[in-house]
Simulated scan of single mutants.
Amino acid sequence: MLISSRFWANGILLFVTLIWGATFTLTKSALTKIPVFPYLTMRFLLATLVMSVLVFWDRDRMKSLHNFKLWMTGTSLGVLLFLGYALQTLGLQTIDPAVSAFLTGLSVILVPIMAIFVLRQQSQWRTWIAAVIAAVGLGFLNGIHQLGHFSIGTVETLACAVFLAMQIVAVDKWAIGYDSISLTTIELLIVTLLSFVMSVHDGLSGFRQGASGIVLIAVIVNGLLGTAFAYWAQLRFQRLTSASYVAVIFTMEPVFAAVIAFIAYHETMGLSALLGGALIVASMLLADAVPNT
């Protein structure tokens, strides 16, 4: 029964990773029809509404919403998550989905490095080796001859990886003792509100383009599956498997993104970019390597 449970847990988490890989191409397509912040507003509003059902379905979770510290923590995490997603989505306007996925994956290497300073965790040799491998991989992915000449999309996505890594470290530091679903709902609500504020700043006319078929597909897949379902599945099934398996599964995200981008756009990566992507995946595996549990 334990083996069967672990098998299904790994399978569902692999499906989640496939969804995440698909979100890059879907978002890239949607951005040809709708501005960044109206799109993010729609995506996270849908995810927030779904997560809110889980909160209001449970009386204890409803009571937890009276906790001021819960709201402060959720707001802080939401700001970091908003910055990460906003920069990632802005970057997708000018770089390919596969490249965006590999660059976003660098957050896996940044997390243990930040944890050394923020959480006072002990430094491990594999963390620094992974960082060096990732840096070399980034060089090949961007093109060795172009080092120092990163595009604006590359810079935005690298900044995205930094903020997503900060969000993960902040969860470890601040989220202990809070109901995860309530906290996640508040976090997603903050992302929704900040995206809407930016939409107002840019002009609300962008929402009129939200009725486009590809936009609706992207919002539904990314909002329902890539955010609400993915968060629930990770909370529900990660505890049934081991951290080492989960680490391996999640490093497949940029690989799935590259395959889906090839199928959807016939987007190909040169030998240098493929080598860079492979090195980044290897660094992610090394940085996340933990003993089996």
Rank of each mutant, 00 (worst) to 15 (best):
W128V: 00
A175E: 06
G206P: 02
G213K: 07
A131N: 00
V169F: 00
L194I: 15
G137D: 09
V111D: 03
I116E: 00
W128A: 01
A170S: 15
I116S: 03
E187A: 08
D96A: 07
M198A: 11
F150W: 10
M114F: 15
I168H: 03
G137E: 08
S180D: 13
S151H: 06
G143C: 09
D202I: 12
T185S: 10
R208Y: 08
Q209R: 11
I144V: 15
V108W: 05
A161M: 09
Q146S: 13
L158Q: 05
G213D: 09
P97W: 07
G139S: 12
V155K: 11
Q121D: 12
I95F: 01
L225N: 02
V99Y: 02
I109E: 02
W128D: 04
S180A: 12
E187F: 01
A131C: 09
I133V: 14
V219G: 01
L92S: 03
G203R: 04
C160G: 04
S205K: 11
I152S: 15
P112S: 08
V108F: 03
M198I: 01
G213R: 05
I214K: 10
T127A: 11
V118Q: 10
L90P: 01
W125C: 07
W125M: 13
S205D: 14
Q167D: 06
I133W: 04
Q88A: 08
S151E: 09
R208S: 15
A161Y: 06
G105T: 11
F102V: 05
V99F: 02
S107Q: 14
V108T: 13
Q122E: 13
F140S: 03
A211N: 14
F163G: 03
Q88L: 13
I217N: 02
L147I: 15
S212E: 14
D179P: 02
N222W: 04
A170I: 09
L92G: 03
T157P: 02
I186Q: 05
T184R: 00
S195G: 15
Q93N: 14
L141V: 07
I220K: 09
A218Q: 08
Y178A: 07
A159Q: 01
V162W: 09
H201Q: 13
S107M: 11
G148I: 12
L204D: 05
A218L: 09
G153T: 09
L216S: 06
A218C: 09
Q122S: 12
I186Y: 08
A115L: 12
I109N: 02
I95G: 01
G143L: 11
A135H: 02
V132F: 15
G91W: 04
S100R: 08
L119Q: 06
L141F: 07
A218K: 07
V200N: 12
L110T: 08
V162C: 13
A161C: 10
F229R: 08
Q167C: 00
S151N: 05
F117Q: 07
F150L: 14
L193E: 03
A170T: 11
L92I: 04
A218D: 08
A98F: 02
V221G: 02
V215D: 04
V155N: 06
M114Q: 10
V191Q: 00
A101S: 12
D179H: 03
L224R: 09
Q121Y: 07
S199A: 11
Y178H: 12
T157A: 10
I190N: 02
L147D: 06
T192Y: 10
V118A: 14
A211E: 11
A130R: 01
M114V: 09
F196P: 04
A134F: 06
L216E: 04
G148W: 13
